[in-house]
Amino acid sequence: MSNEIELIKDPGLPEHKLRQSDIDPKAADRAERQVAILFGLSALGTVLFIYSYLFISTDLFVFIPLMGEQNVHQLLLGLGFAAALLFIGLGAVHWAKTLMPDHEVIAYRHELRSPDIDREEFVTTAKEGAAAAGLGRRSLIKRSLGLSLGLVGLSPILLLGDLGPLPGNALRTTSWKAGTRLVTDPGDRPIRPEDLEVGAVAQTLPELAPGKDHHSLNDIAKDAVLLIRLRPEEFNLDAERLSWTYQGIIAFSKICSHMGCAVALYEQTTKHLLCPCHQSTFDVTRAAKVIFGPSARPLPQLAITVDAEGFLIAQAPFNEPVGPSFWERSA
């Protein structure tokens, strides 16, 4: 036995096997009929599609077992369309598989790499071109061209300058001011403390400024506030934060301090607020301290009290920006 390692050899392409339709003309005819039936089904699908589009009313519903009450127009239009397309495809593939020649063909790969001589010629041509243009010698041209190209590239960026205004103070301000009434969302009705039982919540917005007839989405995105009433003794707050509550009513920004979803899943039993987007959980009794989830900050608390007429108002604007964090937030 020689010491050389002898590998198992490639037996080569296996012998071609004839199909039923290659041997038996009857099988070939059968295959042809099958293909024709498939194409025919497609045509029927188109007919169903046209019929549904033109003649089936869009408000006809019918009960279909396992599927429930379905809109006939939508369902038949779709099924017709699906059949029209699907059966063309199935027919074509069946045709290719049964009737078209299925001899495997061998093609040879060419080397992707260019021959050395071509490579060399390319390098020479490129070098000659560069030399003819004087790129190497005339450095003044090279440098000034580089400068102008670089500068001209700046202009599109500059042109995008009016995409938006600069942030300015916008992220730090809301519509809440000292004395702004809290009104229901929707409904815009002012709220008295006695309107809320213990365990009650209310979705609120600041009262509309004079001359405005509705809240813009930009305002809601910063102003939305959730009111919750607890028993005052349930709070676990420092003196300042306690003074921001009124008879057990506490107000938080509804805009999540994580990514800005509306946090309003209040669990009366646990006094927890949950954000449905990323499941940050806030403890209402401890000024919305984060007790679970990705948020790193409590929800901003709005200091509230009542005005002379007994309606709930803000004592002061929010003392921190509401909503998600940003780079300059704590600056």
């Binding site: 229901t184 309107d195 809320l196 009650a200 919540v201 209310a202 009366q268």
Partner: peptide, 17 residues
């Protein structure tokens, strides 16, 4: 406001609402 559900008072969410 059964179990975890909070109460929705008649003044903040009126009977019609």
């Amino acid at each position: 406001g059964p179990q975890a559900m909070p109460v929705f008072s008649d003044k903040t969410l009126t009977p019609e609402e």
